[in-house]
């Protein structure tokens, strides 16, 4: 004889949450697209590490872990991790058996989000370890490696802005294609808008409040504190982007040069020759903290939209 609902002990929330996390993790790990992107990221890091050695560049950067595979790879990892996290369930019809189990939609949503977080943090950790070890192999001993975890956390926050945006588009449209294209269009639009605004407008500061690269400027190395070694600072470390995509780099810069400032500039491409116009100066600390605040604001708003759309969704499929 079966137990009635009244006699049935109410199972605790956590095992049910973990069940959905497990369900989602298996889906992510076995996704061919995800495996492809991770392989591509590793290939890019390898090339990034190997090229200078190939061209006999005998530089010894003091922070090799800020590998320059670019924000696009982070964006793509976010994209393949969550583009069909919710919408794919609707498209394949698997949402029906899932949502008829005794787990609330909020639990399903939180578990999917948590699984995405774990997948991204594990992937980045492996990539960072690979890049750091690779940097040591190629360039010899590196300085400031204690800041690698800080860069990793920053990059995870940056990626989660895109995770939230893509989840929200997928949740509203119930289409993986819309989620992927919508995310990509926004990513490209912000990159282009950033470049255009940085070239023609004096209002580059506005870019600090949209997802993406933000304004550009130069780290004022002259003002950094005296007790920090200045040898072997690479040129790339002086170039700063202030947006939510660069939280990792800016956090590292802030940790290394807490009192440094950044000269925000724009390049006037209409003058001959193009000239760099200085717009304003702000501290690296403000830039790092503001980009984190802006990132969290976007993450919370878009995750709320995604959750609300998922919670309200009627399953017509």
């Amino acid at each position: 004889m079966t137990a009635t609902n009244r006699e049935r002990p109410r199972p605790s929330w956590l095992p049910r949450f973990w069940a959905v996390v497990r369900y989602e993790m298996l889906w992510n790990i076995r996704k061919k697209k995800f495996i492809g992107i991770v392989i591509a990221a590793f290939a890019l890091v390898t090339v990034d590490l190997a090229l200078p050695a190939f061209f006999n560049v005998s530089e010894n950067p003091d922070f090799a872990a800020t590998f320059s595979v670019g924000n696009l790879v982070f964006f793509l990892i976010a994209l393949v991790t969550v583009m069909n996290s919710i919408s794919g369930e609707f498209e394949s019809g698997t949402i029906v058996p899932l949502l008829t189990k005794p787990v609330s939609r909020t639990t399903v949503f939180l578990a999917k989000l948590f699984a995405a977080f774990v997948i991204i943090i594990v992937t980045y950790t492996v990539l960072f370890i690979y890049s750091t070890v690779g940097g040591i192999v190629v360039y010899g001993p590196q300085d400031n490696l204690q800041l690698v975890p800080l860069a990793l956390i920053g990059n995870v926050i940056s990626t989660f802005v895109w995770v939230a945006i893509i989840l929200a588009i997928g949740s509203i449209s119930k289409s993986s294609l819309f989620a992927a294209l919508g995310g990509l269009v926004l990513f490209i639009a912000f990159v282009f808008a950033g470049s255009i605004i940085a070239s023609v407008s004096n209002e580059a500061g506005a870019l600090n409040y949209v997802p993406g690269g933000g304004a550009t400027g130069a780290l004022n190395v002259a003002q950094r504190s005296q007790n920090i070694t200045i040898q072997n600072i690479t040129v790339s470390m002086n170039s700063i982007s202030t947006g939510t995509d660069n939280i990792g780099t800016n956090l590292v810069n802030y940790a290394r040069y807490p009192s440094a400032t950044v000269n925000i500039t724009r390049t006037d491409v209409f003058s001959t020759p193009p000239k760099v116009i200085q717009l304003y100066t702000e501290s690296i600390g403000l830039i790092a903290l503001r980009s984190i605040a802006v990132a969290f604001a976007y993450i919370l708003v878009f995750l709320f939209i995604a959750w609300f759309a998922f919670k309200r969704a009627q399953i017509l499929e």
Partner: peptide, 12 residues
């Protein structure tokens, strides 16, 4: 929107 009796599905 916020009302969802997931536990009611324990016996279904």
């Amino acid at each position: 929107t916020f009302r969802e009796q997931a536990d009611s599905r324990l016996g279904i």
